[in-house]
Structures are given as structure tokens and as C-alpha cells.
Computed example of a mutant assay.
Amino acid sequence: MKVVTLTLVVFVILSTSFPAAIEAADAGDTGNVGVTCDARQLQPCLPAITGGGQPSGACCAKLTEQQTCLCGFSKNPAFAQYISSPNSRKVLSACGVAYPTC
């Protein structure tokens, strides 16, 4: 439990320290033109990613909204470990979001 709490604290600190707010470069595939990529929007997914549980509806909605941003997040050292984790793949699959191929 301490590891999950520590991971959550680190994620919150990093997400506020490195706000990944960029325009989605390839938004044409999903119709999300003009989506602002912001890793903080994915905080509803953190419990499922760090704990391995089922993602919430809010998590799935944000993953769908931020789908075009996942490649950018995976290239950012502050967020890469979360995107590439086995639980992240499970969460993406449960939400019907394709794992990014960058």
C-alpha cells in the first residue's frame, strides 16, 4: 500500500511540475482536432494503473479524449513508466483504447 501511495504522490508532483500541455499533432485519426494534451487529465486512471483494478468511467472518458496524446506522454520520461506499465495496457484494453504505436 505504501508503494501505491508513494507512486500516486510522485505522479501528482511530476504532473504538476511538468505540465504536458501541447496540441495533439496527429488528431485527425480520431477527430479530436485541437485536443490539448495534458497528463493531469489522466489522474482518474492512476488508481487502476498503479493498483491494477478496473478503470472508472471517468478514466475511460479521459483516455479516449487524450488518446492522440499517448505517444507524446510515452516519450516524456516523467510519464513513460505509467504508459508502458502492464497495468496501463490492461486499463487501455478495458477502455477500448488502442495502445499507442509510436
Results as ranks from 00 to 15, higher is better:
Leu14Val: 07
Ser15Asp: 14
Ser15Met: 13
Thr16Trp: 01
Thr16Tyr: 03
Thr16Asp: 03
Ser17Trp: 03
Ser17Leu: 14
Pro19Val: 13
Ala20Gly: 06
Ala21Glu: 13
Ile22Lys: 11
Glu23Val: 12
Ala25Pro: 04
Ala25Ile: 06
Ala25Asn: 06
Ala25Trp: 00
Ala25Phe: 02
Gly28Ala: 14
Asp29Gln: 12
Asp29Val: 13
Asp29Tyr: 09
Gly31Tyr: 05
Asn32Gln: 09
Asn32Tyr: 05
Asn32Met: 04
Val33Asp: 09
Gly34Pro: 02
Val35Trp: 00
Thr36Gln: 10
Thr36His: 00
Cys37Lys: 07
Asp38Glu: 09
Gln41Cys: 10
Pro44Glu: 11
Cys45Glu: 08
Cys45Lys: 12
Leu46Tyr: 11
Pro47Val: 14
Pro47Trp: 15
Ala48Ser: 15
Thr50Asn: 12
Gly51His: 10
Gly52Met: 08
Gly53Tyr: 00
Gly53Ile: 12
Gly53Met: 11
Pro55Asn: 14
Ser56Tyr: 07
Gly57Lys: 15
Ala58Ser: 15
Cys59Trp: 06
Cys60Gly: 04
Cys60Glu: 04
Lys62Trp: 03
Lys62Pro: 02
Lys62Tyr: 00
Leu63Gly: 00
Thr64Trp: 01
Thr64Tyr: 07
Thr64Phe: 07
Glu65Ser: 13
Gln66Asn: 08
Gln66Phe: 03
Gln66His: 07
Cys69Phe: 03
Cys71Ala: 09
Cys71Thr: 09
Ser74Ile: 08
Ser74Glu: 08
Lys75Phe: 02
Lys75Gly: 09
Asn76Gln: 10
Asn76Val: 10
Ala78Thr: 06
Ala78Phe: 14
Ala78Val: 09
Ala80Phe: 05
Tyr82Asn: 03
Ile83His: 02
Ser84Pro: 01
Ser84Gln: 03
Ser85Met: 05
Ser85Val: 02
Ser85Glu: 01
Ser85Gly: 05
Asn87Tyr: 00
